[in-house]
Amino acid sequence: MPDIYDFLIAPFIDYAFMQRALLGSFLLAISSCPVGVFLMLRRMSLTGDAMAHAILPGAATGFLLFGLQIVPMTIGGLIAGIVVAISAGAVSRFTVQKEDASMAAFYLISLALGVLIVSIRGSSVDLLHVLFGTILALNNDALLLIALIATLTLIGLILFWRALIAECLDPLFLRSVSGLGTPVHFIFLALVVLNLIGGFQALGTLLSVGLMMLPAAAARFWTTRVESMCGLAVLFGIFSCVAGLLLSYHLSLPSGPAIILSAGIIYVASVVFGASGIVNARARRPRHRTA
């Protein structure tokens, strides 16, 4: 028993930075995993990745002007992300071009701009924190920001749940009964950007997408209801965070990749052993009923 305690519990009892990391990652999982489920169901799984790149010039500008501070980098990232999301969304809504193409165009423009801005400042070790995060050094401001984003996200999802489902399931129908389709799409993109912003303090701009998408993609293999998919994704997310933090603590691994790789292991296991995974769908020859 003492071994298990030392391994699983003690790190979080003994060290304040581990407690902060745990709290921050819980909040992130609760907030960004359901967003990931909707991204996946809307076949926009790679959009999260694109948006994460899109945030870069804003965050870099904040970094350039104010140094490694949360508030300016967050606001900068938020502006860049929203501009790209709205531009790409607008092109797909009001022209014949689909969102994948317009999103690719705008995020690449944004990424190039970001790299340009970063290079003005010259290479900096600090900037690695932007790209790969510092979950073990979350301060009060960062935790507060993540909590705020989580609250906003949950309220937004609950408020627009029915519209989000309708917009995924039958967008033409939603347009025929309500003008909410387009606003809901933009609100949703804003939530995606917000969650990536929340994640980049802890996990970095690139890896924060991982906590959003991997648990969601894994949950798809276990359930066929959207509600339970969101719940399961949150559980997977929380589990990945705990596992990743512990691995990082005991094996002196970088925390961000440890968390995302834990989620990756859950995903691969789900692909193979999930209710609609490979083993169930292929290997086993199912019995069938008479009607």
Binding site: L41, R43, I165, C168, L169, D170, P171, L172, F173, S176, V177, R220, T223, T224, R225, V226, M229
Partner: peptide, 16 residues
């Protein structure tokens, strides 16, 4: 108003 389109844009793979 209720409208049944000729080609619905329903995503059949959506878990509904």
């Amino acid at each position: 108003i209720a409208y049944l389109p000729q080609q619905s844009e329903i995503d059949r793979s959506f878990p509904a």
